[in-house]
Every structure is written in structure tokens, then in C-alpha cells.
């Protein structure tokens, strides 16, 4: 469905952020993209959704295809119309609009006006909390409610592929689990393909079919989720487990860090 091939992205003509990034998202699946801070995860999403231009980023190599059509370099609005919708990091709800107005704004690219009402109700089915809050100003919602709104707003566009940028950011663990449960449910009910970027590897891998791990602007490891979870390095660096599945003591971590710094 979505193919990134050897994509290179440069910010401000100088800073090379993606250095030959390749990734495949199969239709109907949930794919997790993991990696540490500054690995280029968000840039990858922005490259797909066409939001790079507004941040002075540009492609220098490679291409992105959606259903076999090249979308790299297209305007963001065109890409949304083709069915790719990005839920940006930090939720970014329209603070001064009400919850319902946020949802209406999400359906901007839709041409079938009469169905919009029905879809708003559909969003309220997934997030009953939002129905109670529908005439509230979105800026005053809690972080979790805003995240629900951001995902609901994305649903309003009926995307084929949803890009989620750190949906767990700043949320309580219980809420994170709830949100990911709903993401999985959306994937199953509506067949929406999902590419989710996360720092919280545990929760992302719990709903994903396939995982990619990024470091320094390229993919360093990928595979079916079951295989990734069994991988030594993934357990060590991303799931925080030692050899025997026990949690590492902080002392070991410090020791390890010291050694790594000395090496470089």
C-alpha cells in the first residue's frame, strides 16, 4: 500500500535527517515505527503526509509511493484527499473550537456532506466521552480527551492510512492502554491501515503486526512483531528487559552508559 524507498530528507538545505529510509506498510495492517529521540520518526511521517515543505524540509533522494502512485513532493491537501491522514504529535486540536467543530473541520476534504453527521456519531461510539463534551471548547479538555479528539478528527476524513505520531505522549498508562485498544479496534472494524510512531515500544508492539526500528535516519531492524519481541537487542534497548526477562537494575544501566561513552 505504502512504500518508502531510500528516502533522503534534508532540512534547511543542510541537515540530513533521513538517510536512505525504506519502509513498507501493507494494507489493513498495523505497523509500528520505533526509535529513540531524534531518530527521524516524525520526519518520516511528515515526509509521507507532505508536511515537510512548511518546515523547510525537502527530498533529496528516493521516493514514496501510495497504491503505486508517487506521492513524494505532492501538496499536503492532495495527499489527504488520496486517503492519508496524519495525527500530529502533541494532539494539536483546534483549541478555540468546540469538540464537535473540531470533528467537522476534520471532514473538510469529504465531498459527501450528508454522511458527516453519521460519522460524527460513529466517532462518539468509539469515544463516548466525547459525546458528553461535544460543545466544550477543545482547549480545556484533558490530555487524554484531546488525544481521543485528535484520533476522532482523523476518523472523520475516512482515511485509508492513518499516521499516528506518539499517541501515548504525556498520558497516564491506563489511558494509553485504552487509546491503543481503540486504535486496534478501528483497524479491525474499518480496515484502516495504521502506521504508528512510538517511544513506548511495549504498547506499540502489543497492537502491531509488523515493526520497524529506526536509528539515525535509517531502519536498523525490522520484522514480524513476535520475532522482534524475541530479539535480544530489542529486549535490551527498547523493552527494558535483561537476558532472563528481568528488569535491569539502574546500576547496570549506568555502567553500560559509561562504557558506551568511553568507546565513542
Amino acid at each position: 500500500m505504502l512504500v518508502l524507498n531510500n528516502v533522503e530528507v534534508v532540512y534547511d538545505h543542510v541537515i540530513l535527517v533521513l538517510k536512505g529510509m525504506s519502509l513498507v506498510v501493507p494494507e489493513g495492517k498495523v505497523v509500528a515505527l520505533l526509535g529513540s529521540n531524534g531518530a527521524g520518526k516524525t520526519t518520516t511521517l511528515k515526509a509521507i503526509s507532505g508536511l515537510l515543505k512548511s518546515e523547510n524540509g525537502e527530498f533529496t533522494d528516493g521516493y514514496i509511493e501510495f497504491y503505486g502512485e508517487r506521492i513524494s513532493g505532492m501538496e499536503a491537501e492532495t495527499i489527504v484527499r488520496k486517503g492519508i491522514f496524519q495525527v500530529m504529535e502533541g494532539r494539536r486540536v483546534f483549541e478555540h473550537l468546540t469538540v464537535e467543530e473540531n470533528l467537522i473541520a476534520g471532514a473538510y476534504t469529504r465531498r459527501d456532506r450528508p454522511n458527516i453527521r453519521k460519522d460524527i456519531d460513529g466517532v462518539y461510539e468509539y469515544f463516548p466521552r466525547l459525546r458528553q463534551l461535544k460543545s466544550r471548547t477543545a482547549g480545556y479538555l484533558s490530555g487524554g480527551e484531546q488525544q481521543m479528539l485528535a484520533i476522532g478528527r482523523a476518523l472523520m476524513a475516512r482515511p485509508k492510512l492513518m499516521l499516528l505520531d506518539e499517541p501515548s505522549l504525556g498520558l497516564a498508562p491506563l489511558l494509553v492502554r485504552e487509546i491503543f485498544r481503540i486504535i486496534k479496534q478501528i483497524n479491525e472494524d474499518q480496515g484502516t491501515t495504521i502506521l504508528v510512531v512510538e517511544q513506548n515500544a511495549n504498547i506499540a508492539l502489543s497492537i502491531a503486526d509488523y515493526g520497524y526500528i529506526m536509528e539515525n535516519g535509517r531502519i536498523v531492524l525490522d520484522g514480524e512483531v513476535d520475532k522482534l519481541i524475541d530479539n535480544e537487542d530489542v529486549r535490551e534497548f527498547y523493552l527494558g528487559m535483561g537476558d532472563l526477562g528481568t528488569r535491569k537494575s539502574y546500576r547496570d544501566v549506568k555502567h553500560y552508559k559509561r562504557r558506551k561513552r568511553w568507546l565513542s
Binding site: E77, V80, F85, V93, F94, L97, E101, A105, A157
Partner: peptide, 23 residues
């Protein structure tokens, strides 16, 4: 009106509006 709502939305957060296909 939906155009009016979208105008207010774009006034709130241009980047987010852009990500939703709002021109």
C-alpha cells in the same frame, strides 16, 4: 457554515489545519 468553522480552525493552528487537507 463549514467554511467558517474551517477558517477558525486554520486561525487556531495552521500546521494542524494543513495536516487535515485544509488549504
Amino acid at each position: 457554515s463549514s467554511t467558517g468553522i474551517v477558517m477558525r480552525a486554520a486561525a487556531d493552528d495552521q500546521m494542524a489545519a494543513l495536516s487535515m487537507g485544509i488549504s
